[in-house]
C-alpha cells in the first residue's frame, strides 16, 4: 500500500487576489517502512505537502494515494477518521494543541476520538508517555504547568497513542535542546526499526537527515527537485548547497581532510566510518 502523489497541484485561496500556488505538479512516491526526510527552504511547500497525507488539505488538481484511500478534489472524501487513525500527523509546535485538565486525559483524547475503549486508551496513553521519556508522575499533572520541551513530548505522545501506521512529523525538534531533540529522533528511529512504522519527517537539520533517515525528498518553490537515498544525496556537495543548506558536520570535516591531502574513496555516513577511514589513512 503506497503513499504517492500523482501530478498534484495545490493553490491557497484560489480565485481571489490572494491566490498562491504552494505545490506544483508533484509526482512522488514514499517508500513504506522507511524513514524519509523532507527538506527545503522555508516556504518551499513542505508543510503543505504533509497536510495532504491525512486529507487536511485536498489537492487542487491531481491525486494523492494514501494507503488504501484515493484523495482527489472531485468528490469529497467521506469518513476521514479511519484515514487519520492510520496516518498520524504531528504539527509544528504541537504543544499548542494541549487542552485537557491532565496530561493523561490529553493523551487519551486521540484514542477516545477513534472509539478505542477507555481502559485500553489509558494503557495506550501510559505507554506513549513512557515512549516519549516522561515517567508516570506526569500523568496527573496539568499539561499547562510543564516546560515547553515536556509539552512537546506530551503532544507527540498524543499522536503516538493513536498508534498510526504512518507517522508524519513537521519539524518535531524545532526549538528543543540538543539532548531532547536527539532523544526524540532516536525514538522515531526505534518506532521505525522495531514497530515497522513508516516515518516522514520535515526538518531543517542536516545532522538528523544523515544520522536517522533512509531517504530524502528535497523541495524548492513548491516542487520536488530531488528524491534519493540519503547516502547518495550527500555524495554530491553541490546538491546540498543548491538549497542554501550546509553539509552535516561530519561531511564538512571530511571535505576539509580531503583538501588537506587525505584520500577517501568509500562513502561515509556515521562517525565510526570516518574514524575508521582516518586510521587507515594514517597507517598507510
Amino acid at each position: 500500500m503506497p503513499i504517492a502523489f500523482e501530478k498534484v497541484n495545490f493553490k491557497y485561496a484560489p480565485n481571489t487576489p490572494f491566490a498562491y500556488e504552494a505545490l506544483k505538479n508533484i509526482d512522488l512516491a514514499f517508500e513504506m517502512g522507511k524513514v524519509t526526510a523532507i527538506i527545503g527552504p522555508t516556504g518551499s511547500g513542505k508543510s503543505t505537502l504533509v497536510q495532504h497525507l491525512n486529507a487536511l488539505l485536498l489537492p487542487s488538481e491531481g491525486t494523492v494515494l494514501v494507503l488504501d484511500r484515493t484523495i482527489t478534489n472531485k468528490h469529497k472524501p467521506k469518513e476521514l477518521k479511519s484515514l487519520r487513525q492510520r496516518v498520524g500527523l504531528v504539527f509544528q509546535f504541537p504543544e499548542y494543541q494541549l487542552f485537557e485538565e491532565t496530561i493523561l486525559k490529553d493523551i487519551m483524547f486521540g484514542p477516545l476520538n477513534f472509539k478505542v475503549p477507555e481502559a485500553q486508551a489509558k494503557v495506550l496513553a501510559m505507554n506513549a508517555l513512557k515512549l516519549v521519556g516522561l515517567d508516570e508522575s506526569f500523568a496527573e499533572k496539568s499539561p499547562l504547568d510543564i516546560s515547553g520541551g515536556q509539552k512537546r513530548r506530551v503532544a507527540i505522545a498524543g499522536i503516538l497513542a493513536i498508534n498510526p501506521d504512518v507517522l508524519v512529523l513537521d519539524e518535531p525538534t524545532a526549538g528543543l535542546d540538543p539532548q531532547g531533540s536527539k532523544a526524540m529522533m532516536e525514538l522515531f528511529l526505534r518506532l521505525n526499526k522495531e514497530n515497522g512504522k513508516t516515518i516522514l519527517i520535515v526538518t531543517h537539520d542536516m545532522e538528523h537527515v544523515i544520522n536517522y533517515c533512509d531517504n530524502v525528498v528535497v523541495m524548492k518553490d513548491g516542487e520536488v527537485i530531488n528524491h534519493q537515498r540519503v547516502t547518495d544525496y550527500f555524495e554530491r556537495k553541490t546538491q546540498v548547497e543548491d538549497i542554501q543548506m550546509n553539509l552535516p558536520q561530519l561531511l564538512m570535516f571530511k571535505e576539509a581532510l580531503l583538501d588537506g591531502g587525505f584520500e577517501f574513496k568509500q562513502p561515509m555516513r556515521y562517525l565510526e566510518d570516518l574514524a575508521e577511514a582516518i586510521s587507515k589513512e594514517i597507517k598507510r
Binding site: 487519520r84 499548542y96 486521540g110 498524543g158
Partner: peptide, 16 residues
C-alpha cells in the same frame, strides 16, 4: 491562522 492550525491539529487527533 491560529484557529485553523489548532483545528487541523485536533482533526489529526480524530476531532470531527
Amino acid at each position: 491562522d491560529e484557529t485553523n492550525r489548532i483545528m487541523k491539529a485536533q482533526a489529526s487527533r480524530g476531532v470531527d
